[in-house]
Design a protein around this nucleic acid. Structure first.
Lengths: 273, 273
DNA sequence: CCTATATGTTCAACATAGATGAACACCGGA
DNA sequence: TCCGGTGTTCATCTATGTTGAACATATAGG
């Protein structure tokens, strides 16, 4: 593992909405490096466009990151397809939909469409991570990972309680994920924020792997009466996306029983251009 | 300059919409490295989330780039402000507006809003770069850089002709940029694509520096009759944005005569949180 | 089913690229 | 004007990254 590259990545991660600008000394202090080392890292990253030097000799994130990210988005097959379906969903329900992937054991929101009937969900922001064990999308994504991986994640990050409803024991999590896997969808019943519920379903690519999860969020008082219709709506929508991605339906070999490393050999035949 | 970090950045830049997936051998060949070296680079980048390993042991861009990019966007002051004004502009004219910055001597499109009356402009895509000397936004951005820098850019990238109207000599470019700087706006008269014109104006931050440029694109046959109104519209809009960013108006010390390194000492007082 | 070819992975010896700290230059505030 | 802090440079040393060849693994073809 290239130490220098790791450090460079660490430097990049220092830049957040809270502190968007860093100087040499600050970076050196934050990473425990000598000033000269931090200096060199920053200079090099700036030369490559990953950082940007301000007039005052400090640094901000560079536009190259935007370019790379854009490339990532354009080459992520499920995004384009999912967006269309999400728009329909929002149009029909007037609520908020989320699209998320699992990164490093956490949920990363990739897309969010807000309906006119929807309450502003401050917690979820595109580009932001949240713990996976509480949200609907998070539970869907975890449910389709091998159990050992889930254990490792929990050991690393714990099960922080965001509300009184949040799952906080690994036993309950195990039961929940098993249920989610078998029924094909997950609920969030005020587990991430009091007063907010959602239903979520998995999106699969042509190899059958779960690549993302989609959810429809509603205020709690609207959730319980409409639960059934909400569920079928999100499951249907997610399946429609999966189908468009080349996933050829249920029943077959893809009733993956994660926990065993069963499908680990599934290979993308897709490949190169 | 840290060689390893440079190489890591080179690796990232290999990933494009055309080839979004790379293997160890391919990367090694592309960069002229031994396989083991490429392997280590890819592994490290993947461990940091900047790349993602596929099931088949190949690599794609990672979601960390999306997160970093999102942070960049959220902390770029002019973006939020500009978006609002652009929406108004599109609503009023039904044409397409672009927002762009200068990166590495090229124009990088950062935002694009399409009106209902507008023709699809395939050439400009958010996240894509174009040479600066032909587009309206490009000329605005170049006009406010020191002339020596412009010369360096031209020496590096030449003046490729995208249409018969494209400026292809440095003399014409110099005259054009001077005019643009003095009048406060630029036209693109079918210089990037036949049949397409635009008017563009600079956006300044509170230090008076030109941080971005905005344009309103229209089909050529609609450009000439409406030129005057188009010009005032874009200039007005851009000025409104600048004002909201804290730029306190014309006339004062900001009539920057780029070419002399006059304002190089202007310092952002903005800073950290 | 088994071979052949290509691709990803590992390892240990070597050389150089990067780490380091002190001294310097520079700016902004007192 | 001076002072504290910040960014920058440099020469020394060693840890780090580089390298190529051998190994493991997967894909395509007979």
């Amino acid at each position: 593992m290239l130490q220098t590259v790791r450090r460079a990545a660490q430097v990049l991660r220092l830049f957040t909405p809270e502190q968007a600008e860093w100087g040499v000394t600050e970076v050196a202090a934050a990473l425990g490096l000598p000033k000269s080392g931090a200096h060199l890292l920053l200079r090099t990253l700036a030369a490559e466009g990953l950082l940007q030097r301000t007039a005052s000799g400090r640094y901000r994130l560079g536009w190259s990151l935007f370019e790379l990210s854009q490339t990532k988005l354009e080459t992520t097959d499920f995004l384009l397809v999912a967006r269309r379906v999400m728009e329909q969903l929002v149009a029909g329900w007037g609520e908020t939909t989320h699209l998320a992937v699992l990164v490093d054991g956490q949920v990363l929101y990739v897309e969010k469409l807000q309906g006119d009937r929807a309450l502003e969900i401050v917690l979820s922001r595109v580009g932001k991570r949240l713990p996976a064990h509480c949200s609907g999308v998070g539970k869907v994504l975890l449910a389709h990972r091998p159990w050992e991986e889930v254990v490792a994640i929990v050991e690393r990050q714990g099960l922080p309680a965001l509300t009184p409803n949040t799952i906080t024991t690994i036993e309950r999590l195990r039961a929940e994920l098993e249920a989610v896997r078998h029924q094909g969808f997950a609920y969030d019943q005020e587990e991430v924020m009091v007063g907010l519920c959602c239903a979520a379903a998995p999106i699969r690519d042509e190899t059958g792997e779960v690549v993302a999860a989609m959810s429809l969020s509603v205020p709690a008082y609207r959730f319980y009466p409409y639960r059934q219709r909400l569920t079928t709506a999100i499951v249907e929508a997610a399946r429609r996306i999966s189908t468009q991605l080349g996933y050829d339906g249920e029943g077959s070999q893809w009733n993956d029983t994660a926990g065993s490393r069963s499908r680990s050999s599934a290979r993308a035949t897709s490949g190169r251009t």
